[in-house]
Design a protein around this nucleic acid. Sequence first.
DNA 1: TAAATTCTGGAACAATCGTTCTTTAATATT
DNA 2: AATATTAAAGAACGATTGTTCCAGAATTTA
Lengths: 195, 195
Amino acid sequence: MMGRVKEFNEIEALDKATELFWTKGYNATSANDLVQFLGLSRSSLYATFGDKRRLFVRAIDHYRARNVKAVVKMIETSDDLLETIREIFVRSVSQDFLRKTPKGCLMVNTAIELVPHDEEIAQMVQANEQDLLHAFEAAIRKGQELDQLTNRHTASALANFLYNNLTGLRVSSRARMEKQALKDVVELCLSALRK
Amino acid sequence: MMGRVKEFNEIEALDKATELFWTKGYNATSANDLVQFLGLSRSSLYATFGDKRRLFVRAIDHYRARNVKAVVKMIETSDDLLETIREIFVRSVSQDFLRKTPKGCLMVNTAIELVPHDEEIAQMVQANEQDLLHAFEAAIRKGQELDQLTNRHTASALANFLYNNLTGLRVSSRARMEKQALKDVVELCLSALRK
DNA sequence: TAAATTCTGGAACAATCGTTCTTTAATATT
DNA sequence: AATATTAAAGAACGATTGTTCCAGAATTTA
């Protein structure tokens, strides 16, 4: 037998939870905050998502799948890798320029807040790092083969370098970056990659 | 009249508080944690430092003064700016390679956790950013004058670039960086700066 | 030594934390 | 329509939160 049907959409609720955790961080988001922001009752929240930590784990998994997929697709369909890398950088912070309360990147925020104190979450953050590094390495290799990018460093080293700069930008974008900083960083990264 | 004398050293207590906030973050550090770790009573803690937030503000100010001073001094006394920049980068993360629970950088951690939600602290973080940017800019200008660093970009742009890479490294050092990533990032930064 | 002052230890506070439980409402199957 | 099942609403739980208060210990000054 089926019983009463849910009055809310689980994916929409997960989206909202992701947004709230992204804005406030894990510890600063209370169960009360979640109940209010998702617009569902305590019992529904706990029946659907388990406890706060399980909900957070689903939220970062949700976030991470979406974002990695987008980056990988941009790289796969690119025939101008320099331009694509610029686009990846600009896109990853441009939203925050419009916001009164910038959010940065949920994976970076989580790396800082929880990686040293939660092993399962640490592994998810590291898996995300690996995915991004592999995507960047593929992009660079592709660019090198198309003779668009430098061969003076290995694709792996350049991928680490790009990842590091993207991380830096994501911290600054949460902490109110000036536009000029973004421009400078993008230009210098690209000029380090150029042939 | 003088009354009973303190049984603890205020600076030592502040050092310990700084270390605890640095490791656990602001929200995840409870008043109980502080009482235990500093080894003084609740009443002494509150009488000496006000409340938890005031103590945190003093801690990050303490931290920031110490670190900026060290970087500025290294730059001022340097006659090989490339080597000094390498040293600044390596020093800022090398401690964490030895630690079971790496701490990263308290200012970066704070930028992520509190800047979007605490105006006073946001301004302290931004002041720290300005100090570091100015120090880097001075280093680059000096290196350019000594004909050690490239003139293909402005000192200001290169400072933004260096700052961004340092921030990225500090995130990764809290989130268990591989040594190779540090090496790659340092080498690529230096090669972007070289003449 | 008495008085004044300051610090310490820990009990106590209201508020909030994450979570569970109970009751009632809604739906599907028989 | 009766029964079975699931969801929703919100009261209630013990634990922990940050903070205050109070009684007593320690020290200085008079």
